[in-house]
């Protein structure tokens, strides 16, 4: 494959005291891919993702995000990524419009771009009636869709999604994935963790983390063949059962 590599990691490790949360993981993610990052709770997914976003400094190993080094160029990385955490993290005491303008503004969008972006976002999310309501008053599913849209407001090269659809109903999840596909069409690479195996099927490639290491990595189809399983659920059980940590 000669495609452009946007995330490159080699032997990336994070230790907290004598606990190795992420143990020498190595992988590449290509431009325009939807890369699924799976694993049981406590397998080290969030820790790995935080290192890739420049929120946490690795203990050892190397990683380059959009061509920038995770040790020395974290602020440059932050110009080129979007991030949506497990915890809902827009400002609940600001309105929909204010959140969009605030995050757009701090990513350096011009006044003109901000205006257009706010309008198109609010239209496409169907939030016209709610643009002046506080985010706190929105249902969870809407909040998550809004949070995703804000995370890609500056058209980053990569967007990191940490369990973006946790607790969201199936219809809204489907709509959420439509937003993800739209982003991919615009050339944004998607790095996503999830516990929903139907969502895993939507990914181009999947890595399975068990006890801080990557136990398997391939497309969902190949993984099912490799593990002789009928569904991704079975692949997940096969691998996660071997875990000693949880």
């Amino acid at each position: 494959m000669s495609r452009e590599v946007v995330i490159h990691t080699n032997q990336l490790t994070k230790q907290f005291g004598d606990f190795t949360a992420v143990d020498a993981i190595s992988f590449d993610v290509y431009k325009g891919e939807i890369f699924g990052f799976l694993g049981a709770n406590g397998a080290g997914k969030t820790t790995a993702m935080r290192m890739l976003c420049g929120l946490s400094t690795p203990t050892s190993g190397e990683a380059r995000i959009a061509g920038y080094d995770v040790y020395r160029e974290t602020e440059k990385i932050k110009m080129h990524i979007g991030y949506m955490s497990q915890k809902f993290s827009l400002y609940e005491d600001l309105t929909v419009g204010e959140n969009i303008r605030f995050f757009g503004g701090i990513y350096g969008l011009s006044d003109q771009a901000l205006k257009e972006k706010s309008r198109s976002l609010i239209d496409s999310l169907g939030l016209k009636k709610h643009q002046n309501s506080l985010v706190a008053s929105l249902p969870l599913g809407w909040k998550q869709k809004l949070a995703f849209s804000v995370a890609v407001i500056h058209e980053p090269s990569i967007v990191f999604l940490d369990e973006p659809t946790g607790g969201v109903d199936p219809i809204t999840r489907r709509q959420f994935w439509d937003l993800i596909y739209d982003a991919v069409d615009r050339g944004i690479t998607v790095f996503v963790t999830t516990h929903y195996m139907d969502e895993a099927e939507y990914c181009n490639r999947i890595s399975m983390m068990v006890d801080g290491v990557i136990a398997a990595m391939d497309s969902p189809g190949n993984l099912k063949v490799q593990f002789n399983a009928a569904s991704m659920d079975d692949v997940f059980y096969d691998l996660a059962r071997a875990a000693k940590r949880s």
């Binding site: 929120l55 110009m79 827009l90 995050f103 701090i106 990513y107």
Partner: peptide
């Protein structure tokens, strides 16, 4: 609330 993390991933 966790919003500081969202701030910390911005430039």
């Amino acid at each position: 609330v966790g919003t500081i993390e969202q701030i910390n991933v911005t430039p």
